[in-house]
């Protein structure tokens, strides 16, 4: 999953996207490999003047965001629409 996420985001970044909203509603698993991808993508977007936003972060995945300190580094929204309103 993590390599797919990274590759897809890279495609969008190559096309000039600077904001990416990631909907994690269906994500039930996240390890350090996923955090690594999130961090890489986020650094690239920030360097381009944009950012990575999240919505629907829940359950154990949210716990991983919390204990890794990622919760304080990103913006979280309930829905993609709400996230889009903040870019």
């Amino acid at each position: 999953m993590a390599p797919n996420f990274e590759a897809q985001c890279q495609k969008w970044i190559d096309k000039g996207s600077v904001y990416i909203v990631t909907d994690l509603e269906k994500l039930e698993y996240l390890s350090s490999a996923g955090l690594r991808s999130i961090l890489l993508v986020s650094k690239k977007l920030k360097a381009a003047g944009g950012k990575l936003l999240f919505c629907h972060v829940h359950g154990s995945v949210k716990e991983i965001f919390d204990i890794s300190g990622f919760s304080s580094m990103f913006e979280f929204y309930k829905t993609p629409e709400e996230a889009l309103a903040h870019i």
Partner: peptide, 20 residues
């Protein structure tokens, strides 16, 4: 875990998460 995104190192979290 308290540093800003720009300074965060890629990786190094795996063992920490495991312990948790």
């Amino acid at each position: 875990l308290d540093i800003e995104l720009e300074e965060r190192q890629i990786g190094g979290l795996g063992i920490f998460l495991t312990r948790e």
